[in-house]
């Protein structure tokens, strides 16, 4: 059984059909990508998967459980974490506090135990802090733990978003254009980091990307969209040779 299974997913805004009968699946432990030209519906699909949009029809299953229509925080708790296309950090808070936010849905102590300073609450705080630090180390920005997140360089902010998502202990992590705004060197680092996420933590990765070079380099399977429909699905080699994909990206000869 696939870890993430999307079947006949439909989404429309008013009369505009944004997604039409999308079906694909992501196997556990894979690195897959969704690509397509601007306006193809990639981000809309992403928002359906993460609970920010409610699809009009079809199903989304995570580890066999239906998640379509659940609120975002429930989906995260069930094991699907995300990053944002235009970095959405808590800029006024410390880097560590940002990383700790992922642990919220994996912990449970509330207001009363915090006021009473219960030993179990203290231990849980230690655990949350420890997890935050570990993920900062994993992405390589632990030395900035006590700086404000807004003061990090652009590349480090992207890393922090990854650390924050990973801190929620996901089964699968969805990366929305993680290479946007990165230079070539930073892109290489990113490819390396994405591989490490899968290889060292076993977390499945689903990318949405514009950057064809990066996608071809890192993905085992690629799903291609255009105008809200799936037009191809397969290995990088197969997708690259597909006439429909070439047409969508380069246009047709008249």
């Amino acid at each position: 059984m696939a870890l993430l299974e999307v079947r006949d997913l439909r989404l429309s805004f008013g009369g505009l059909k944004v997604l039409q009968d999308i079906s694909f699946s992501v196997e556990k432990g894979a690195i897959n990508s969704l690509i397509g030209p601007n306006g193809a519906g990639k981000t809309s699909l992403f928002n359906c998967l993460t609970g920010f949009y409610k699809p009009k029809g079809g199903s989304i299953r995570l580890g066999g459980r239906p998640i379509a229509g659940l609120p975002p925080h429930r989906i995260t708790a069930l094991g699907l974490a995300r990053t944002f296309q235009n970095i959405r950090l808590f800029k006024e808070m410390s880097v560590l506090e940002n990383a700790m936010s992922g642990q919220h849905c994996r912990s449970r102590h509330g207001i009363v135990s915090a006021i009473l300073h219960l030993p179990s609450q203290r231990r849980e705080e230690d655990m949350i802090r420890g997890a935050g630090m570990r993920w900062l180390e994993f992405v390589g920005i632990a030395e900035h733990a006590h700086r404000l997140a807004g003061g990090l360089s652009y590349g480090d902010q992207r890393r922090l978003e990854l650390a924050r998502a990973l801190a929620s202990a996901p089964e699968i992590i969805l990366l929305d254009e993680p290479a946007a705004g990165l230079n070539e060197r930073e892109k290489l680092d990113l490819v390396h980091l994405i591989r490490r996420i899968r290889d060292e933590t076993g977390v499945t990765v689903l990318l949405i990307e514009h950057d064809m070079g990066l996608v071809m380099q890192v993905s085992e399977k690629i799903v291609v969209f255009d105008y809200g429909q799936k037009i191809a699905d397969g290995t990088p080699e197969a997708v690259r040779a597909d006439p429909k994909v070439i047409e969508a990206y380069l246009g047709t000869e008249d």
Partner: peptide, 14 residues
């Protein structure tokens, strides 16, 4: 988290 970015907070599981 909610005060600074409500959507990001929801996306991270709050």
């Amino acid at each position: 988290y909610v005060r600074y970015d409500e959507d990001a907070a929801a996306g991270i599981g709050i």
